[in-house]
Design a protein around this nucleic acid. Structure first.
Lengths: 204, 204, 204, 204
DNA sequence: AATGAATGAGAGTTCATTCAT
DNA sequence: TATGAATGAACTCTCATTCAT
């Protein structure tokens, strides 16, 4: 049977809906704690349909973690480590990334699960780790440029990158029960400090 | 009395053993992913015995999270916010706490679970949150003293405390698959920076 | 609609079958003594299917007791307390009811369980009690009419009704291991005697 | 080790206590519904002790049903079928037996269980049946004497005996949730009627 | 004799997955 | 493609029974 365009687009929408609800539920209840039936109900389809779009629960889980990753990577890596005004770029990057972390509660919760259970979900974790490595590499690139230009104190760039990404992730956990926290935006100066800018903001 | 002292002490040891194994398994696989049978096998008892010591799986889980908390709280809060040489005390505190976070992989993993699933484990989360609040209060106390004495830049102490505890937690997640990382001890200067010491180490 | 008519009717038949087998088994072994697995096997379905039709064992038990009640009530209460020829109606009623009691071994056995364990199965017992009350009320109505007409000796109608229903129930227990007993039909004169007919049969 | 007299008598008392509580609990909850732990607690002994006195749960159950039987038999069969004033003896017998049935709620409840589950508890049921047969034989003896003397109408004595014992048992079930019912004593005239006395009470 | 920790068979129940409709 | 009845593996938990103390 041939599917009409309308049917195809309908299926794409439905698949997307299932995935979105799956992310929410997996993030809230974990893999074992989430029932296919719940995902189906939240998505407005029969639980049989979930199996039409995803081979089984594991596939759905993997997709829920991995598929949004591309968009995140794009957003998170959207900064230029070669920028002329590096401090300006650094500040803007931090603000953007903090905003992303502040607004991606559910998904990052799911990420936390994978990290915490990395031994259980090796393959899925590997993909997150890849993203993390890319992120770190680009950060290090930026830091090295800043240090070369004398805009940042000389410190091990790897440590800085680790501290910074840890801070972001830690904030996500710390502010988890207060999703609309106003604290997020106030914390960028502290993130900036980690990079060791030669002229501290409050010194200017 | 019917149980001999020897029997009683045996029981205490057995209970402890079950709890230790439960922490490891819950940390690795989460609540639903951990089977009582596994805990029993890892503890070297029959699964029936697990129910001799813990009413049910939930009770065991709660105990696994909450019982170690006291010792952690004691260790983590073991610093003096009124100390004369405050910078010295701050540095030593950070080093101690980083060491604790570096060496408590399993347990902190479990803590991460509870935080990530705080809506599912409200009661258990509440106890962790209480600990967190106490920790923050004591940190703020120390920070305020440092600022009064002119040893730390004036910055919102709450933000500093949040950033610092977030950094610790974030590092735990970031270094999760590399438990013996040498990075831990190298990161205390970055943690120190968050507190805004007037004389930076590398300036001395 | 997704289920065809055929499927629906199949489900109704299957549910009925499960219930019938459940009645037999509960009657023979009691609630705790009956295993869901046995009910499933006797009904020719997987034990999982039992849970498709009945939420849990208790629901199944309750249904096994309560659902047949309506039909019984209808049959048992099928007499006219205002009938002109009251003695005739009384005799025919007794014969009918004795026949019902003689032929409903399993179900009445189940009823006996509920009565014996009325404290354990309060809700279920309440429904049986309601039936019993209705039965008694209608009997009393008939007895009072008979006494007014001078066809029955004046005796407390409540006592008569109690004695009569007790006799029926007691016979059920007494003849339990001999279900095809020829005694049943011979006992209606004794039941009749309880009502105190002015002209005893053997006097005519 | 030799047991002192005091110890021996203590054990006898303890065994009795366990049996009494077992009767109550088995009567209320049935065999499977009663837990050894409950019996122990109700008896004020450890559950281990129950196994000191009764080999296992089945033995305890059997004993709970069978051991009181002797005393009951003695009380129930305490009438003289050869008595001169037979009607007087009959009336007094009925009154005595009704009193016994009125006051033996728990035990008779247990008896009902065995009867209802006679296929499950064949051996235990057999002993009850034996008692029943003895009871019937003695009743028939009395009835035949009464009929010979012209004090009772000629009716099949077996039917009378069956109707009478059924009435007793049925009353036990009918009045189960109202143990102190005043109805019991009012019902002996109806029981008497079943025997077919030539001069009915209310004719005298 | 008395106790109760230890055991594990066996129960009810859940839920991913299959498949006929 | 969409549905949901059917299945049974696998889980938690109960409880009779054993046995060391």
């Amino acid at each position: 049977m041939v599917l009409s365009e309308k049917q195809k687009s309908n299926m794409i929408i439905k698949r997307k809906k299932i995935l979105t609800e799956a992310i929410h539920l997996f993030a809230e209840k974990g893999f074992e704690g989430t029932k296919i039936q719940e995902v189906a109900k939240a998505s407005g389809v029969s639980f049989g349909s979930v199996f039409t779009y995803f081979e089984n629960k594991e596939t759905l889980f993997h997709a829920a973690v991995v598929e949004p990753l591309k968009k995140y990577e794009e957003d998170i890596l959207n900064f230029n480590p070669e920028e002329q005004d590096l401090i300006q770029e650094l500040e803007s990057m931090i603000k953007k990334q903090i905003k992303i972390f502040a607004n991606s509660g559910s998904y990052l919760n799911l990420v936390v699960f994978i990290i915490a259970q990395n031994k259980e979900y090796k393959d899925t974790f590997k993909e997150l780790d890849l993203f993390n490595i890319n992120f770190r590499i680009k950060l290090i690139h930026l830091i090295e440029n800043g240090q070369k230009k004398g805009l940042l104190y000389k410190q091990n760039p790897t440590y800085i990158a680790t501290a910074y990404t840890s801070l972001l992730m830690g904030l996500r956990l710390n502010l988890i029960d207060d999703p609309s926290s106003s604290m997020w935006e106030e914390l960028s100066p502290f993130a900036l400090q980690l990079f060791g800018p030669v002229k501290l903001k409050n010194e200017l």
